[in-house]
Write a protein that binds this DNA or RNA. Structure first.
Length: 569
RNA sequence: CGGGGCGUAGCGCAGUUUGGUAGCGCACUUGCAUGGGGUGCAAGGGGUCGAAGGUUCAAAUCCUUUCGUCCCGACCA
């Protein structure tokens, strides 16, 4: 391709509304243009990159035995009403009416549609297992679209759905897909982690997210320093610490702590460490009941874990000051478990505390030297309700927890029968009886992968594409070609030779200055650049520069094709 | 949904406080020069100042309403 026929649309100025590097660079490099909030047009250069992601994804899906289909983005409300999601999905579901005033939505996902397909097309267990996939546009009317293509209202997703007679078959396909996903992200050249994930409202026992590692990622993930263990921090288990509390060495003492409310304030006031404090949080339970959650002062409540406990309101809600005053006879900041009559749930690490400090349920007073059993009974219910921190013991017992940030680009679920049961999708089994089919579902945010790749691979000059994602592998940059017929001939020959050799090359035949050309090629992240000039022609050489390298190297003109082929393997 | 910011040429911005009929940089067009890291000089084209209503002799500027957009949070999952 020639730049004279493939306009680059690069811009020098960073758009005012782009916050993160990938968003800024996608606009500057001319990959996308904004139409409205959360809606983007893909320009030729950007689409070329997205097609690379699709191609690699498709190849692995086919290898995994999945069959490509294409389902409508416009979907009738009836199917969504069958599963109850027409009501449940909320305003994020883009709804509309047709001219006959019938309800439709623009699909945010396709469980209902594929399940409808399955119940109509799959009649016998002999047709199972089967996996369908598609690469298609999804619509989610996000409350707050942001970060460009990263969280947009319309985006491209690869979604796959598998159907099974039994759990063992689902497990088998799940593992195949897990491997296919790993292959995809490896081929894309991205540093990623597969992590144990919360399956949320989608349900099912098993779920993994695939995260591209990047500092700017919206999710925190926890993984082991030595083993394969990795989990979303929402889901990472804080294990029960071994041992028993140290013996009490201090007397229970009621002290004045005027105007000391937060853990931080109390610690400074008493000159103790946060780990020596007990944090008491009051949250809403069921039917107006309140529940006290006890955490070590240096730990944070994990709301996902807490709201899964029976009797705690989901979504989690904190009690207000009034409700706290009624239940504890004091304001927040002086709450503690001693004498508390509401239900108490303690975090696992709390059980090992001794000689600790906690609120006294009297404004401006705390207890010091508190010890379980001697001063108050250990709470009957001990649960894992905190977020893991760096250095925690890994749940599999091997190594310690390290934290990193990631961008969720893939998510796989073992759905079970949630949709197939609601929509009565069954097959006749070997015994001739009707049986509800079991489902799995598997998604990759194709357009988000493009942004995530940039987020992970860029520098101050622009994008640094991993080889398999680059819109072009090689750029030819001739120096002042319009002034030298000899150079023009040599450049054209080099271009043709590369095309003939099957090299994906962008020939910059614009009449622009060297610096302009280099800056553009670096901004759009072409991995390999060949600089050809009269100077080199005299000695029969061209210059080669890798996007990631500092300097150039000279290569004989005659050898350049072989040289590049070796680089491109 | 709550809080805050911003809407002036394709992009980035000044001008709004104190009302007088719109400007700068980039980009674009043309010419000359330059020619290995976003070059220089000159000439040019392009804007109902987000929209509607109001105040005024006069509104980008003041008032009201409204729309869009971005950030923070909540909600949703």
């Amino acid at each position: 391709m020639r730049t004279s026929q493939f306009p680059l649309n690069t811009v020098k100025e960073t758009p005012a509304d782009a916050e993160i590097a990938s968003h800024q660079l996608m606009i500057r490099a001319g990959l996308i243009r904004k139409l409205a909030a959360g809606l983007y047009t893909w320009l030729p250069l950007g689409l070329r990159v997205m097609r690379r992601v699709e191609k690699i994804t498709r190849a692995e899906m086919e290898k995994a035995g999945a069959l490509e289909v294409l389902m409508p983005a416009l979907q009738p409300a009836e199917l969504w009403q069958e599963t109850g999601r027409w009501e449940q999905y909320g305003p994020e579901l883009a709804r509309l009416k047709d001219r006959h005033d019938r309800d439709f939505c623009l699909g945010p996902t396709h469980e209902e549609i594929i399940t409808d397909l399955a119940r109509n097309e799959i009649k016998s267990y002999k047709q199972l297992p089967i996996t369908y996939y598609q690469i298609q546009t999804k619509f989610r009317d996000e409350i707050r679209p942001r970060f460009g293509i990263m969280r947009s209202r319309e985006f491209i997703m690869k979604d796959a759905y598998s159907f099974h007679l039994n759990q063992a078959s689902l497990q088998e396909t799940y593992e195949v897909m897990y491997q296919a996903y790993s292959n995809i992200f490896n081929h894309l050249g991205l540093k990623f982690r597969a992590v144990i994930a919360d399956s949320g409202s989608i349900g099912g026992a098993v779920s993994h997210e695939f995260h591209v590692l990047a500092e700017s990622g919206e999710d925190a993930i926890a993984f082991s320093t030595v083993s394969d263990y990795a989990a979303n921090i929402e889901k990472a288990e804080a294990v029960m610490p071994g041992g028993s509390p140290k013996a009490a060495s201090a007397e229970l003492t009621l002290i004045d702590t005027p105007n000391q409310h937060s853990i931080e304030e109390v610690c400074r006031f008493l000159n103790i460490a946060p780990a020596q404090c007990l944090k008491t949080l009051i949250v809403k339970g069921e039917e107006d009941a309140l529940v006290a959650l006890l955490l070590r002062g240096d730990h944070e409540l994990n709301t996902i874990k807490a709201e899964k406990i029976d009797g705690i309101a989901s979504p989690l809600a904190f009690a207000n000051d009034e409700e706290i005053s009624l239940a504890c006879n004091c304001k927040p900041g002086s709450i503690g478990p001693i004498g508390l009559t509401i239900r108490i749930i303690a975090d696992r690490s709390v059980a090992l505390m001794s000689d600790f400090v906690c609120g006294a349920n009297q404004d401006g007073k705390h207890y010091t030297g508190v010890n379980w059993e001697r001063d108050l009974p250990l709470p009957a219910q001990i649960e894992d309700i905190r977020t893991v921190v760096e250095g925690d013991i890994c749940p599999d017992g091997q190594g310690k927890i390290t934290l990193a940030r990631g961008i969720e680009v893939g998510h796989i679920f073992q759905l079970g029968t949630k949709y197939s049961a609601a929509m009565k999708a069954g097959v006749v089994n070997e015994a001739g009886k009707n049986q509800i089919i079991i489902m799995g579902c598997y998604g990759i945010g194709i357009s988000r992968v493009v942004a995530a790749a940039i987020e992970q691979n860029h520098d101050e000059k622009g994008i640094i594409w991993p080889s398999n994602l680059a819109p072009f592998q090689v750029a030819i940059c001739p120096m002042n070609m319009h002034k030298s017929a000899r150079l023009k001939d040599a450049s054209e020959k080099l271009y043709q030779d590369m095309l003939n050799a099957g090299i994906d090359v962008l020939f910059d035949d614009r009449k622009v200055r060297a610096g302009f050309m280099f800056s553009d090629m670096e901004l759009i992240g072409i991995p390999h650049c060949i600089v050809i000039g009269d100077r080199g022609l005299d000695s029969g050489t061209v210059e080669y520069k890798a996007r990631t390298a500092q300097g150039n190297e000279e290569v004989a003109f005659a050898d350049i094709i072989d040289f590049l082929k070796a680089k491109l393997i």
